[in-house]
Design a protein around this nucleic acid. Sequence first.
DNA 1: ATAATAGTGTCTTTCAGACAATATCTT
DNA 2: AAGATATTGTCTGAAAGACACTATTAT
Lengths: 239, 239
Amino acid sequence: MAELARNVERGPTPIATVDVVLLTLAGDRLCALLAERAGEPFKDEWALPGGYVHTEEDADAEATARRVLRAKVGFEAHWLEQLATFSGADRDPRGWSLTVAYCALVPHAALAAAIPGLSGPGAVAGTPSGRLTLRAVDEAGSMPFDHADILRAAVGRVRGKSSYSSLPAFLLDEEFTFPELHSVYQSVLGATLDRAGFRRKIMEQGFIEETGAEKVSGGRPARLHRLVERNLTQFQRTI
Amino acid sequence: MAELARNVERGPTPIATVDVVLLTLAGDRLCALLAERAGEPFKDEWALPGGYVHTEEDADAEATARRVLRAKVGFEAHWLEQLATFSGADRDPRGWSLTVAYCALVPHAALAAAIPGLSGPGAVAGTPSGRLTLRAVDEAGSMPFDHADILRAAVGRVRGKSSYSSLPAFLLDEEFTFPELHSVYQSVLGATLDRAGFRRKIMEQGFIEETGAEKVSGGRPARLHRLVERNLTQFQRTI
DNA sequence: ATAATAGTGTCTTTCAGACAATATCTT
DNA sequence: AAGATATTGTCTGAAAGACACTATTAT
């Protein structure tokens, strides 16, 4: 393979990396996980966690994303989806580069358990693989490379899909109450949704089911639910 | 840059290519443009048109897609969107590879004008850049690499977006009648849509406008319309 | 006049939005 | 009982679906 690397038909090969937008809900704020860059370029700045594609180790780019997540947060995401690929001559000072961006959703409880200290936006945690922080997605500000664009695209995708799918449920633990589901949809969409209407809508889609258990919460206990399907399900719609 | 190509942190770099799924509507059948491969691997087989990323020439991967389209069909697509990136160790016999797939929609009239002979599914046309054919997307069969997966993903994306956006209009000429728009939605979605209801739906979205002209068609002439926005517009929806 | 195609009106059913009412817990 | 939260019921206006009707051309 080595001699192909500068094949005359092909010319110089772009740098190939993977970046991960890990989103979680801290309180009612959608936050992204940022990692402090260990090396140049943009050393010590906060950026999306990512890394080079390791062709000997990774079966495909999604495997790279999973490896990055394992290395940074120590567990697999409940939801991982390819977002888009960002490329060009100018986005990286090292040269023409191409990054396959992935979007991951994790429950905040699982993240905070894996990385003590990551309680909410602004909190910084030191880990063996470097320093991590959570930042509210609407206050991300500028970031190295085109990471601000990537983050914006991830949030747009999540908000868009959330209005017609079970996606926000992946920000909750395995078992959740209806008020929690209602709240996470409201937080992600940034809108208030009528409780009764939302309940009917979700129930007629039939992608959640009762576990039988309940959760106390100061008033009447709420019934616990779980997703019927482990993967995303879209709402039925008409044209 | 050259010494970075086998940087020790990075390891061998994947092959980086771009493939384009060009879709058009021949009659009422959604078809993809396939090109006969000029070289190995899979020489002489029908595959998606594509090519290496040329880092000296292409500003980004989308520029590569545009260059491929210019070279193959001689004109720019009315609609071009990044689809997804397909990667892995096994998809290309040359080694670990990564292809950024793009989806292009073009009116059949424009395609047939640019490439005489590409009248409908099955027709083969010889061009300076090689032989081309149109194939109905539901009868694509097997193709080199993972091109069958890529085509399936493109068709799924187009069908999905078509139910809530102006996307199918990009398969029509600049000016089109309402019956034509109705027909193209039906062809793409594979469903029959009530004329009156469809008309109301489209009109209240307000993304098309009358040109003032009419088009004769054997019965009452139909009013011609055009897209108000050159880019895609989505229908309003509720959760 | 008839056939063909384009465009509109109307009725019914369904669904979203708002809000009221009821249920079940804790203190 | 009072307060808090969860869950369900009902009313209303808007929209979707089905279908009939009218309009404008060609032959």
